[in-house]
């Protein structure tokens, strides 16, 4: 019964734009197509990285965000290249959403000199400062105070820019989270805190780790809006981001957005998924995949057709293949450069 009512309540495009979900009112078909393309690009980048890891081309570890693409892309939609982000150990999506080139990202994962960090950072420190991405972070909650500091700079320098700080549900129990949110609110800084709550801090569920039902509930303690959105619905995420970015740009201070989402893969490459059921994982993959959901919406509202989707997929496939080839054929760092950039060379 419930399903039927929802289905009937869904407006068709021709019934009036004002009843469409936010993203379909606010962005052009071209922009929505770009958003879908970025979600694919993130998905295929991570699948490509996973495959390269399995084949021994990438060492170390990585944390995949497959299943969380709507949050990365939706939050980024209202941002400009001048706005900044701090990201997390699960940060490939944020990096791509903010405009990074997958070729230089693959090169970084392959440890090559052409990578964003010249092979010094790898997956956990991927950054693209030229696009305002101050970097992923290997420390849970490590980027949150840094984002507040960047927002302090933006305010002091009167740039009108805003800063987004992504973090996971695990970080909301770090002291850095609480200290940073408090200062951002006291100083009314242009920062948006985005918690991607995928239900588990490594293996520990939020129910077992967090005293409040929602991370967004904690916003009340720091006198800022706390917004909960379906993190797998691109339009919902973009709507919350848009409101928070506007608020920040107008000097009204920070917002905490909680994107409820799910990671399809394990925490990292060592995860055996012993803390969640197969049924739970399969349900999220089959019924709540953010890319499938967005595709369906786009088709329902007549923004794209099957051929258009196929064209985007093919285009992304080409980009990923070329990027991996670029990474494979790029030069490795020179061992003589081991200690370069520990300090700034003043010469």
């Amino acid at each position: 019964m419930g399903d039927k009512i929802i289905a009937q309540a869904k407006p068709k495009a021709e019934e009036g734009r004002h009843n469409l979900p936010f993203a379909f009112r606010h962005y052009s078909p071209g922009e929505l197509g770009q958003a879908l393309r970025k979600m694919y690009l993130i998905r295929r980048f991570e699948e490509g990285a996973e495959e390269s890891y399995t084949r021994g081309l990438i060492h170390g570890t990585m944390h995949l965000s497959i299943g969380q693409e709507a949050s990365a892309v939706g939050i980024s939609l209202p941002l400009t290249d001048d706005d900044m982000i701090t990201s997390t150990h699960r940060g490939h999506g944020h990096c791509i959403a903010k405009g990074a080139e997958v070729s230089r990202m693959f090169a970084e994962f392959f440890g090559k000199e052409t990578g964003y960090c010249r092979g010094r950072g790898g997956s956990m420190h991927i950054a693209d400062v030229s696009k305002g991405n101050l970097g992923a972070n290997g420390i849970v909650g490590g980027g949150i105070p840094i984002a507040v500091g960047a927002a302090l700079s933006m305010k002091k320098l009167k740039t009108g820019r805003v800063v987004v700080s992504y973090f996971g549900d695990g970080a909301n129990n770090e002291g850095a989270f609480h200290e940073a949110l408090n200062m951002a609110s006291v100083w009314k800084l242009p920062v948006i805190f985005v918690c991607e709550n995928n239900g588990y801090g490594m293996s520990t569920s939020t129910r077992r780790s967090t005293a409040v039902a929602n991370v967004a509930d904690r916003a009340a303690a720091y006198a800022m809006p706390g917004v909960i959105v379906d993190g797998n619905d691109l339009s919902d995420v973009a709507e919350a981001s848009h409101a928070a970015v506007e608020r920040a740009r107008h000097g009204e201070g920070p917002t905490l957005i909680e994107c409820k989402t799910y990671r399809h893969r394990g925490h990292s490459k060592s995860d055996r998924n012993r803390y969640r059921t197969k049924e739970e994982i399969e349900d999220w993959i089959a019924n709540r995949d953010p890319i499938q959901l967005f595709e369906a919406q786009m088709q329902e509202y007549g923004v794209i057709d099957a051929a258009g989707i196929e064209a985007i997929r093919t285009d992304v496939e080409r980009e990923i293949e070329a990027a991996i080839e670029f990474a494979k054929t790029s030069p490795a760092p020179d061992l003589a450069g081991l200690t370069r950039d520990v300090y700034t060379d003043l010469a």
Partner: peptide, 28 residues
């Protein structure tokens, strides 16, 4: 007060704010 800023008793957060400000054009 904008250039001589009292912080809350938050050494970790405060240090992080200083790092972030230094990264983005200020000299804290």
């Amino acid at each position: 007060e904008d250039r001589v800023m009292d912080t809350p008793i938050s050494e970790l957060g405060g240090a992080g704010v200083a790092v972030g400000a230094a990264l983005t054009g200020m000299r804290p």
